[in-house]
Structure formats: structure tokens, C-alpha cells
Design a protein around this nucleic acid. Structure first.
Lengths: 329, 329
DNA sequence: ATGAAAGCGCTAACAT
DNA sequence: ATGTTAGCGCTTTCAT
């Protein structure tokens, strides 16, 4: 149906190899010939069959992106970033959502690995073993996770936590609750570590709740715990959870931030849109996506895979309406 | 690097074609042989190269999904649905986000068309002409858009509008504002039509604002218009816009729903999470995704493409905290 | 500077 | 029931 390289060749009166060279911009072809070929290709609406090319070059020009849950607005942000950058490099992107299911993730990763040049795994929960076995087969970039020997893009979780704690401390909060994320999540444990040390330094008492799944309902449940624990501020593993906290507090008639301050993490677009708007630790979602693609592209050069790069992006606290001075008791 | 069919063939002591047949589950191969082949394949970790297979079968087992903006939570819902169903049928999904940009959409559609068996275009703004030229090349399913001759999945926009208007009328609202979506959007015009006829029937006066881009900021701006127009309820083109309305009303100290009721459309997860929660017309996002994949799969059978199917899904009003009785004047 | 030939990994006739 | 052959569309030696 679609025109093949041979059609173009005969239309231009040259051989298929010349067409291939001309279209690849090879110097070895006469400018006049190249132009003739280009025009023939144009006229026939010819576009090389990527699968056929991949068969011989060993490159698909596709990349895979696996995320835990597109329903958490953090991930669409990443997807947008990955995509935008990938398309610039003429790479198409397979996207897969694991529904937070580890075995689904393993299956998807294995199956995608066969049809892409590289894979970006977002907040993966796969075991280090599995990850290492994947790297043997394919270029791999981890996002929000670090594993020795595998390249990654992560964010400065600890720094973000530190900023949030300083903010709360400055507002006079001395007793702060934390709604922890999933126990087996790398970012969750990173955040917890950063938080503990920041709290200790700032002389803030930290009350931990959880672990919780990274869902709205978790925040709803955690809000009651926070209230019972008589903290003056609550930090949550992520914005979706923080939104749950906010919702429950409102339902229970607790004024935010007058009675209780709330801090989220991720800075999803929604944080600015809800009421009260949410103070949150901003992670550069799209930028992280860009960075992941850039990193992946360097890994296409197999020789560079031996020396993994772990790159860490900055986080910034964005203060909004959900935090205020600690209530005087 | 990866094992090929020949490796399996020699390991199992048969020819490549037998391996191909055995793995395809052909009846023409001795059960014993099949088992031997299966085990050899297993042992070598063999998985057929899909690109090579596609080259000969003419099927890629990939499908493409193009959405306007993943930052609008409606679309991730669709993506999840599409993906889930596609994976069941062993199809991988390319996802592309056009950033609401028509020329980007055309480019992406053309470029994806070459590496997939079918394309799902979500809320596309492409011209009918372009769409028809695409259908010539590839199986196409439209979502939230109907074009004669092309299969589509859409929702009962008019029915949803009718439910919302009845709801408001029952609450005593007689003067209702509508924040219209983009002028060139099919669903926007559908919703407007449905709304007008429902309002007329229910004897509700309709004040139209817009057109507006489907963004949060549009709602912010429209809220002021609604206030100036002295309506008692505002309906918005979609939830993201409605959230903007809510936000601005809160900033201006207008109580929802006591002074003004607000209704959105889409039922994105956020609608239930914000404060006050949003009454909205629910569209079945994931279900629509499933339906689109199912429809696309029937179109893989080329003979069925002559007789396009337009399937319409139901919508349901979900009443939440943002609507209440009309204030007595 | 260009063409001819080989081959990527696979499946589908066509043998046997 | 299995093997042999050819060829999908392309790139890449190797010739010339």
C-alpha cells in the first residue's frame, strides 16, 4: 500500500541503495541526485518503514515509559515531559501504567524491552535483581529510584523536606505529623530519612503515621490520626494524599491553616487549584521527563552503560494557603 | 544478543518454520515436537521479534493514542482504559499528547500511522478532510467526535446536560450561566446544543459565556462574568474549568452552593476531592477507552471499515456539594 | 558516486 | 508433520 524504497528508486531512476543514502543525507551522493530522490520521495509520500530499518540497524527508535498510575497527576506530567523530548529526537513513546502492581510492571517491562531501544522506569518497585537483569538487555533509566549501577534521575527529596520543615518551624510549629507513603517505595523512604534529619535539626517533633498507599483515601484516614495526635501541622507523602487530608479536615470542620497546616509533595497542578490551595514541595515533573530522555539517549551508545549516571534535580517549596502560623495553645 | 528463531530451531533439532508453527500453536505440529520447541524457547529466553514478524504479516500489534492534553485528568483516565484493554489483546500503545496544538496533532497522527495497526484520536480538532485521508491509510477510531464515515466512541453529551439542567431546575434555579469550551471543539458544540434545548424545555434562562480554552484559568475568568450576570448557577464546559470557577468564587468570598451553584463535566477524580466537592456530569473515561480499543480491533478486519460504527455511551450526573437550592432573592 | 548482493528475523507458500 | 525457499523493506558491505 504505502510506497517502498524501490518505488522511489525507480521513480528517481536510481537504485534503492542510492535512495537510502540520499535520504540519510550521506555525503557520498551527488547533490543533484539527492535532490531528485528527495523530490520523488516527496511526491510518492514515501516514509521509510521503521520496522524494516530497525531489523537491520538494530534500533527501533522507540522508547518505553512505565509509570505506576496515571491517575496520580504527577505521572502525566512526567509523561508529557518524556514525550515532548522524545519526539524532538524522533523517538516514539510506548506508555504503560502498572496500576501500582509489581508483577504487572515486571511483565510490561519485559514485553516492552523487546520493542524499544530504552526504557524509563518511573518510581519502580521492581527488585534490584530484576532491574539488573533488565539492564543487561536494554538501556534503562530509573526515575525516582536509585540502584547501584543503573542510571537514574531523581529529585532532592531530602532538600525538599528540609525546606518544608524550615518553613513550618519558622511558623512556630513544633509538633508535626508525617503521613508516610508505601513502605517499599524508594522515594518514600528517602523522604522519611530527609524529614527525620531535618526535624531533628530544626528541633521539631515528628509524629509518623502509616505506611499508606499513595491515594486520596489514605489522606482521609490519616487526617483523623493527625487530629488525634494533636500535631499543629501535617506533611504528606504526596499531594494526592495531602488532598485527602484537606478533604477530611474540612469535613470535620477543622480550619486550614488556622487550626492545622498541611504540606504536600509533588506540586501537581491541582495543588494550586484546590481550596485552600496546598503548600507543597515542587518536583520538576516535565523537566525530569526531559532529563530522563536525554540520559537514555546517551545510553544508546552502549559503551557508556558501564558508567551509570545518577542525576539529581532540585526541589522547591511552594508556599500556598494551606500553611500558616501554628495556633497558640 | 537476543535468541532468534534459528537458535531455538537448532536447539530443538527442528527447522525454523516448525518453531514458528509450534509457537503459534498450529495444529499441524506433533504435540511432542511442540513441547520440545516450547521448552527450547523457554530455556533460551526466546521471544519473537515483533518488528520482523510485522514486516511479513503486515501487522505491528501496536496502536496509537493521541490526546490533546494529559494535564487534563480526563485524558489519563482514557489512556488507562485504552491501555488496559490493549494489553489484554497483546497490543502495545503509543501515546502522544498534542498540547492542544492542531498541527502537532496532524504531524503525530501521520507519523504514528506508519507504525501502528490503528489509531485512536481523542477529541481531535483535525479537519474532516484530514481525518478522511487518514482513514484511507489506517484503521481509525474517533473519541468525543463524530465525522460521517468514521467510526467513533462518544458520550451522550446532550443527555448529561439535560440531567444537569433538571437538577438545577428542581433546586429552583431559573437563571443559569454556561462557560462554553473551545469554539472548534465538537464536544463543546454538542454540549451547548444539548444545553440550549434542555434549558428551553425546563424553562431555565441560559446565559452563555465564552468561548474559553479548557483550562483552569478560563474558569477563574468566567467566575467574574457569572457573578456580574447575576446567575444563581454556573455550568462549565468541563471539570477543570469548573474548578477554576470554584477557586475564584472562594477568593471573592462567594459561598458555594449557598450563593451560587456550580456544575462541571467529566467527573475527573479530582471533582470528588476538592472542597466543596463538585457536582458533575460523569463520563465513563476508562470504559470509553475500552470501547475504543474494542472497536478498533474489529476494524483490523479491513472489510468492516466500510460500515463505520458510532457508539454512544451514557453519562450520569453525580451530585456533590457544589450544588444546592437557588438563593431566594 | 552508484549499483548489486546479502541479510536483519520472521512467516507463508510450496514442497515433500 | 516437517523442511526448503522466498521475501517483507530496509541498510550496508563490497564492487565498480
Amino acid at each position: 500500500m504505502s510506497a517502498t524504497i524501490r518505488d522511489v528508486a525507480s521513480a528517481a531512476g536510481v537504485s534503492p541503495s542510492t535512495v537510502s543514502r540520499a535520504l540519510a543525507g550521506s555525503e557520498l551522493v551527488l547533490p543533484a541526485t539527492r535532490e531528485r530522490v528527495r523530490r520523488a520521495a516527496e511526491r510518492l509520500g514515501y516514509h521509510p518503514n521503521r520496522a524494516a530499518r530497525g531489523l537491520i540497524t538494530g534500533r527501533t527508535n522507540n522508547l518505553g515509559l512505565i509509570v505506576p498510575d496515571l491517575a496520580n497527576p504527577f505521572f502525566p506530567g512526567v509523561v508529557k515531559g518524556v514525550q515532548a523530548r522524545a519526539h524532538e529526537s524522533d523517538l516514539a513513546v510506548f506508555v504503560a501504567d502498572t496500576d501500582e502492581n509489581v508483577s504487572a510492571e515486571a511483565r510490561l517491562a519485559r514485553s516492552l524491552a523487546k520493542q524499544v531501544d530504552g526504557l524509563i522506569l518511573c518510581s519502580t518497585r521492581l527488585s534490584e535483581e530484576e532491574l539488573r537483569s533488565l539492564t543487561a538487555d536494554i538501556a534503562l533509566v530509573l526515575m525516582n529510584r536509585q540502584v547501584p549501577g543503573i542510571s537514574s534521575i531523581s529529585v532532592d527529596n531530602a532538600g525538599g523536606m528540609r525546606q518544608a520543615v524550615s518553613h513550618l518551624a519558622a511558623l512556630g510549629h513544633r509538633r508535626v505529623g508525617y503521613v508516610a507513603g508505601p513502605a517499599n517505595s524508594w522515594s518514600s523512604s528517602q523522604r522519611l530519612r530527609g524529614l527525620r534529619s531535618a526535624a531533628a535539626e530544626a528541633n521539631v517533633e515528628l509524629i509518623e503515621f502509616g505506611n499508606f498507599a499513595p491515594h486520596f483515601g489514605s489522606g482521609v484516614a490519616a487526617a483523623d490520626l493527625a487530629l488525634a495526635a494533636e500535631v499543629t501541622a501535617v506533611m504528606a507523602y504526596n499531594d494526592v494524599v495531602a488532598l485527602g487530608v484537606l478533604s477530611r479536615l474540612s469535613a470535620r470542620g477543622v480550619a486550614v491553616p488556622d487550626q492545622l497546616s498541611v504540606v504536600g509533595c509533588d506540586d501537581i497542578a491541582l495543588s494550586a487549584m484546590c481550596n485552600p490551595s496546598l503548600t507543597t514541595i515542587g518536583l520538576p515533573q516535565e523537566h525530569a521527563g526531559h532529563a530522563a530522555v536525554d540520559l537514555l539517549i546517551t545510553l544508546f551508545d552502549e559503551s557508556r552503560r558501564d558508567d551509570p549516571i545518577d542525576s539529581e534535580l532540585d526541589t522547591h517549596l511552594t508556599v500556598r494557603a494551606s500553611t500558616g502560623p501554628a495556633p497558640s495553645t
